Simulated scan of single mutants.
Amino acid sequence: MIDVCLLGTGGMMPLPNRFLTALFVRYNGKCVLIDCGEATQIAMKKKGLSAKPIDIICFTHYHADHISGLPGMLLTMGNAERTEPLLVVGPKGLERVVNALRVIAPELPFEIRFKEITEDEMSFEPEGMPGFTITAFKVNHNITCYGYTMSLRRQGKFDVEAAQSAGIDRRYWNPLQKGETITTPEGIVYTPDMVLGAERKGIKLTYTTDSRPTDSIVRNAKNSDLFICEGMYGEPDKQAKARENKHMTFYEAARMARDAEVQEMWLTHYSPSLVNPVEFMPDVKKIFANSKAAKDGRSVELRFEEE
């Protein structure tokens, strides 16, 4: 199970009724925050979430509405007596940008570790999150910008008959089921593939903002259970402005959701001038029926499919 909370849905600036886009994800007791604009801490407080247990902060890019809340977030973590290291992920220049912001948050009781994205696509499995992979993929904005896909693998079912036929002692069943290779005191080696069936469908979440439509988004969002995508403009007459500013319309996002065959799409990162996103949804749903104009704090538990 993966807990997902879209903390805010605004772009450019926080508004009294709309915080800036940031995503909070929790799995296996570990927490990931994607983007940290101004007022992200307030959005977290409204949802009853604490900054202290955040293990990873990923940045899509270094525009202020996506990173200006970081110094305050770091200070709050420090004031909560956090001592565990924090992993920060982002495009080229990450350490320089973060350290510049830390001029106003210079002393922290925890270490900041950096993972800079230097390729068009990069994947890693965070420590303490077995089977959970974060993939950063380059999108098309007016500065270097990345989307993120988070995938949770689901191994095959444990085959009791196969384990019994192989004469595997029951004490080894549980570690084999967890994917561990066993070597007995007699030197016999047992591997997980001896007792596990084919890998089953896992969970996939894709988040992207500040981009024109790109093949990289469709490819990485393919078959996602949830696709969270920027919809800067809902007004049909804003197509030219979207192209000029390297942003997206609701309808372009819906076409990508359709082409990627996702289960559900939430729109986010609305222009401050967009007062009522819901009014444009009937036409969006004609393109991709399971589209939602997300509001701040929208949450969901993504679970494995029942069998």
Results as ranks from 00 to 15, higher is better:
Glu305Ile: 03
Ser216Gly: 04
Pro213Tyr: 00
Arg18Thr: 03
Pro213Gly: 08
Leu15Ala: 09
Val32Leu: 03
Lys47Gly: 03
Arg200Leu: 10
His141Asp: 10
Tyr190Pro: 02
Ile104Leu: 07
Thr149Phe: 13
Val195Gln: 08
Leu23Arg: 06
Ile112Met: 14
Trp173Leu: 11
Leu152Pro: 00
Val88Met: 00
Asn79Arg: 14
Pro14Met: 03
Tyr62Arg: 11
Lys138Leu: 12
Ile217Asn: 00
Ile182Ala: 11
Gly131Met: 15
Asn174Glu: 04
Lys157Thr: 09
Val32Pro: 01
Lys238Phe: 13
Pro71Gln: 12
Lys30Gly: 01
Cys145Phe: 08
Thr181Val: 12
Asp210Trp: 07
Ala64Cys: 13
Gly131Cys: 03
Arg219Met: 15
Glu180Phe: 14
Leu15His: 13
Asn220Lys: 09
Thr209Glu: 08
Phe280Leu: 04
Leu196Tyr: 05
Phe132Glu: 07
Glu125Cys: 01
Lys204Asn: 06
Arg26Phe: 06
Ile42Val: 00
Arg18Gly: 04
Thr144Tyr: 10
Leu302Val: 12
Gly90Pro: 00
Ala253Thr: 05
Val103Asp: 14
Phe250Arg: 04
Leu75Asp: 10
Arg113Met: 09
Pro213Trp: 02
Leu15Ile: 06
Asp3Val: 07
Phe19Ile: 05
Ile168Gly: 12
Asp296Pro: 05
Thr40Gly: 02
Leu274Cys: 07
Glu306Pro: 11
Leu176Met: 01
Thr191Ser: 13
Pro91Arg: 08
Asn140Pro: 12
Pro175Cys: 04
Gln239Phe: 10
Thr249Tyr: 10
Met129Leu: 06
Ile104Cys: 04
Val88Glu: 09
Leu75Gln: 02
Val4His: 11
Asp296Thr: 06
